[in-house]
Design a protein around this nucleic acid. Structure first.
Lengths: 110, 110
DNA sequence: ATTATTGATCGTAATATTGCAATTAAATAA
DNA sequence: TTATTTAATTGCAATATTACGATCAATAAT
């Protein structure tokens, strides 16, 4: 199979899973950290920064863009990437309630 | 290939990715939510709660256990599962800095 | 002892992901 | 026009993930 049965779950659960999946690769984590570390949009040098081949980086960027965490704008021959702050905020609002589930119930039976 | 090049990234980046991957399936999100929603350990009825076959659930539980987010203890014929609060806290400490990267730099160039 | 019951494991099929070489597309520079 | 540069796309191989039927191991019940 290999096909997630999304219809069995709530929209929220699927969205959480989708966002978590975007963060579920070290290269994508590294890309996001790099974009945050630079105090401006990054035009070009992402491939040099992360140690993977250009098509691989391009694919990871595409995934991050498809879930909305980053956005890219063509600037001549280069493409400038940066964090989509609005969507990043939405992602936080989606994941935070999951991470903080332990503050709601203080179950400690085990 | 299909093999993540972990050696190219920091331990932190790999750990973040590993934890995110554990949350990257709606069934696992649903399992975790369910374990939190019940105010005690869940013995048995996880399969009934999530709408997937027993071997599938068993596999997801195994993954959650392998990253330490839950723990299970045999109780007769049933197995009782619950959140590992200590490791859950570690997971939060790992992911929170990533989620809050936008509060550190207020870059808004795009 | 025999028969459920529960949940892990095995085996397998279908699909997804990761990675890169080769190529292509698009814009700039000569 | 003809390079050159940059990044997306294509095609492919290797591996991982998801799902479940079938089976197995362990305990409980009869």
């Amino acid at each position: 199979m290999g096909l997630t049965k999304t219809e069995k779950f709530t929209a929220e659960q699927n969205q959480v899973a989708q966002m978590a999946k975007a963060l579920a690769h070290p290269a994508r984590v590294a890309i996001l950290q790099y974009l945050f570390s630079i105090d401006s949009c990054v035009c070009g040098d992402i491939v040099n920064e992360i140690g993977l081949a250009q098509p691989t980086i391009s694919q990871h960027l595409k995934e991050l863009k498809s879930v909305g965490l980053i956005k890219g704008s063509v600037e001549g021959t280069t493409v400038c990437y940066c964090i989509d702050h609005e969507n990043w905020s939405s992602m936080k609002n989606l994941l935070s309630p999951i991470l903080n589930l332990d503050t709601v119930t203080l179950n400690n039976c085990c």
